[in-house]
Amino acid sequence: MLTKRIIPCLDIKDGRTVKGINFIGLRDAGDPVELAAKYAMEEADELVFLDISATEQKRKTLADLVLRVAAAIDIPFTVGGGISSIADVEILLKNGADKVSINSAAVKNPDLINKLSDKFGSQCIVVAIDAKQKEGRWKVHLVGGKVPTELDLFDWAKEAQLRGAGEILFTSMDHDGTKEGYANEALARLSENINLPIIASGGAGKITHFINTFIEGKADAALAASVFHFGEISIPELKNKLKEERVIVRIDK
């Protein structure tokens, strides 16, 4: 059986791991390569690196980091943050990234999804969507959640699928940083509407939140950052608890 995936997310700024609380107020949580290797050892299923400084600084630091990560770990990883062109994607994939995630650039230029999936294959194109509720509707936000749009989450996810996305990474900005659980209702609706793997993001605080997002939220994967980086939840313990709840996970001992 295909397992549910646990994905630690490493937010990167200037080559270091950071985690924003509601996207503001950054705290340093270590060296990305070291942290990546530690998570791989603990049987994280995948990793995501989000370069939150990407739009403001040169890309070379990120490409170098990707190369060092690929040399060190033997599980898949996705790289995102400020990616807006075929050339951006090419260098990251060439340096050993398995997938890239695109966000604002895809909203501004939806054709980018078609171009990237035609060139590199759908399997390596993750469309990341940040959204929050406004008057009962989920609205897509851009630039790390700073800029609201009128675009509806579910419409946009559907369009991303039709244009060739291979996976959807949905971050609920209403839940991100709250540690009160994932946006399971919206996640379940996404899974019903979209025939792509869905990664749940935003709101993890306790082990029960992961159990709920897999069962109620029908998520294929759950992403979290600070609960892992600060040792609040250990991945082996999390996976054992998931297994007890009959969520299928990879425990390979």
Binding site: L2, T3, D45, N195, D220, A221, D252
Partner: peptide, 27 residues
Amino acid sequence: VKVPQMGWNSIHRLNGPLFDGIEAGAY
């Protein structure tokens, strides 16, 4: 099912030298 299949799946009925030391059910 969701397409693509993406992630870790268990493998079974393992035959041949490539699987030496790998047990059925490995991910």
